[in-house]
């Protein structure tokens, strides 16, 4: 099934088209979400929301961009919203902990590693440090960097997804790498590993 007929099928609520779309793009969408939220279960939940949004708004898709570009955009927006909500929750949680004596301090950390029960502690620590360092990079830089490193997308594809010029994407990724290096150097100086 080619892209236009796939879109047409989805617009007509064709179950076969739904299944084809999900089978073709589920890995890409889950990967994108996971590269932003760093948790497999959360990434799958967000990916499901992405497909539901696509099914619901299929009539608005005009075919000006590729289907994958549209999916990337929705996946990125939903993942960023998830991260922002999580940050807000953690902020209120920290306030609550201040008043309740910090009973729930370790809950989120343990939840974050639920999907990797067999990985060693050093690997976990390293990943956590990497995620924290990437998390410190400004949002646009982080998205461009993530799409490039985790999704292996070309600068041109990233420019289309982020609706930016090629030179802007080059600049974003260059600055993202510098920022990541600075964050990791801070960590190295503190002997965090």
């Amino acid at each position: 099934m080619n892209e236009p007929s796939l879109i047409k099928g989805i617009q007509q609520n064709d179950q076969h088209a739904y299944r084809t779309l999900v089978e073709n793009y589920q890995k890409m969408v889950v990967n994108t979400c996971k590269s932003i939220v760093y948790n497999h279960a959360d990434a799958e939940d967000i990916a499901q929301d992405v497909f539901l949004e696509v099914f619901r708004n299929a009539n608005q898709f005009r075919g000006e961009a590729q289907l994958s570009t549209w999916l990337y955009r929705i996946a990125i927006n939903r993942s960023l919203n998830f991260v922002r909500n999580n940050r807000r929750k953690r902020f209120w949680q920290s306030i609550e902990d201040t008043f309740t004596g910090g009973r729930n301090n370790n809950r989120e950390i343990s939840e974050n590693h639920n999907d990797q029960p067999d990985s060693g502690i050093t690997d976990k620590q390293r990943k956590e440090i990497l995620h924290q360092a990437i998390g410190m990079i400004p949002e646009k830089q982080r998205i461009a960097f993530t799409l490039n490193k985790y999704e292996d997308l070309s600068y041109q594809q990233i420019a289309e997804i982020m609706n930016l010029s090629l030179s802007s994407v080059e600049s974003l990724i260059h600055r993202a790498k510098k920022n990541l290096q600075d964050q990791l150097y801070e960590c190295y100086k503190k002997k965090c590993i």
């Binding site: 299944r19 999900v22 089978e23 589920q26 890995k27 889950v30 990967n31 996971k34 590269s35 497999h40 990434a43 799958e44 990916a47 499901q48 497909f51 539901l52 690997d123 390293r126 990943k127 440090i129 990497l130 360092a133 490193k149 985790y150 292996d152 290096q181 990791l184 150097y185 190295y188 590993i193």
Partner: peptide
């Protein structure tokens, strides 16, 4: 520091491989 950074960047490679749950479409 170069060695530490190299290991950190290699972690990205190891995180790329994601298997999606076989029940993904059923749940959806």
């Amino acid at each position: 520091f170069a060695e530490m950074m190299k290991q950190q960047l290699q972690l990205i490679e190891s995180e790329k491989q994601t298997e999606v749950s076989p029940y993904f479409f059923t749940k959806l």
